[in-house]
């Protein structure tokens, strides 16, 4: 066997494994979606769900599924996928599995802006999304600009991000303190990450963003993998790393911000999806599609747990936080032990 053939078979093997993982994840997500629609105060069998979804009017079920559970499920899928994919982009771009947007402060820009919109300017709906997106992108740009000094360094960007995140969190606390008691619960949703009471109309901006940004990111995936090799090698391979990086950051931050505007920052989904997907595909770099599906599955699964597993209903962000904690620690130890690029 020539070496080209070896590479070829290896590649095919990897492709096959990728496809297998992605199909398994897709089936898992669909199952979780069905559970989201079926479980609740009244448990509906699958045929009722299908009849409701095909626009049949059934007393009780049409309202419960169509207006309550369907938006919740859609929000879970979309937000999870958005966080998953953008987390994976950040992690591979910065070559550090810990550098997800929620840890390096990008999400806190969107949260701060959303909270300011609600509490100070009394905005609602699409306006909040728009402002959150602009603020998220601006925060990312600020972090990027502050960490430029000399050559690009992922480590510096992470530190600056943590600092900017801390400042923005103090702004959020200030806004919450100045707000009238009546507005605070609405704003709290942007801080804890919850799928409660989401209406279909609120999802429209996120859907549009995902339709535009996800394909763009998937197209950029091959270049992302080249950037991962380092700026010099990327340049040798004909990839302009600065320009590509900027495009990647814009798309990923856009997704984070739109998703944050809908549910608030759901802890750790962006952070966990990439490494979990990587583990399953066994590939050198995580597939973005697999990360997106993992994110969706995580969010749906955590929301189901939060709704039904305990006496109290926990918002999804608390559950993902608790599930994420041990994995995070495991990951920290593992990365540090292997030396990593940190």
């Amino acid at each position: 066997m020539t070496s080209i053939e070896i590479v070829k078979t290896e590649r095919q093997k990897r492709l096959r494994r990728n496809i297998a993982v992605i199909s398994v994840l897709a089936v898992l997500v669909v199952t979780l979606c069905a559970l989201m629609l079926s479980l609740g105060g009244v448990i509906y069998p699958i045929d009722v769900i299908i009849r409701v979804l095909s626009n049949e009017q059934i007393e009780g079920a049409t309202f419960a599924i169509g207006s309550l559970r369907l938006p919740r499920m859609l929000a879970g899928v979309l937000v999870g996928a958005a966080f998953g994919i953008s987390g994976a982009v950040f992690q591979s771009m910065l070559r550090n599995p810990l550098a997800s947007p929620d840890i390096i402060g990008v999400s806190s820009g969107a949260s701060a802006a959303a909270v300011a919109c609600i509490l100070v300017f009394n905005l609602s709906g699409a306006a909040i999304s728009a402002v959150a997106v602009v603020a998220g992108v601006a925060t990312a740009a600020l972090i990027y600009a502050l960490s430029r000094g000399g050559s690009f360094s992922g480590g510096r960007l992470i530190l600056v991000g943590i600092g900017v995140g801390a400042m923005l969190n103090s702004v959020i606390s200030y806004l919450l303190l100045r707000a009238s008691q009546y507005d605070v619960p609405g704003a709290m949703r942007w801080l804890s990450g919850s799928l409660n009471g989401i209406r279909k109309e609120e999802l429209a901006p996120l859907v549009i963003a995902m339709v535009v940004l996800c394909p763009t990111l998937l197209c950029l995936e091959s270049r992302l993998k080249i950037i991962e090799l380092g700026d010099h090698k990327a340049a040798a391979l004909g990839v302009r790393s600065d320009r590509t990086r900027l495009l990647l950051v814009l798309c990923a931050v856009g997704l984070v911000a739109f998703a944050t505007a809908v549910t608030g920052p759901v802890a750790f989904v962006a952070f966990l999806s990439g490494p979990i997907a990587k583990r399953m595909t066994g590939d050198g770099s995580p597939s973005l599609l697999a990360s997106a599906l993992t994110g969706a599955a995580l969010t749906l699964g955590a929301d189901l747990l939060g709704q039904f597993a305990f006496n109290t209903k926990f918002p999804v962000g608390v559950i993902t936080g608790i599930i994420g904690a041990p994995y995070l620690l495991f990951l920290l130890v593992k990365i540090n032990r292997s030396g990593g690029s940190v």
Binding site: I103, G155, I158, L159, A267, V318, G321, A325
Partner: peptide, 26 residues
Amino acid sequence: TPVKLALAGSATGAALSSLVSAVMLP
């Protein structure tokens, strides 16, 4: 190194504060 320490700290902080809200919310 500073980055390892800062990441370990902020990640642990995020994890612990979810635990805090999980204990507290009910």
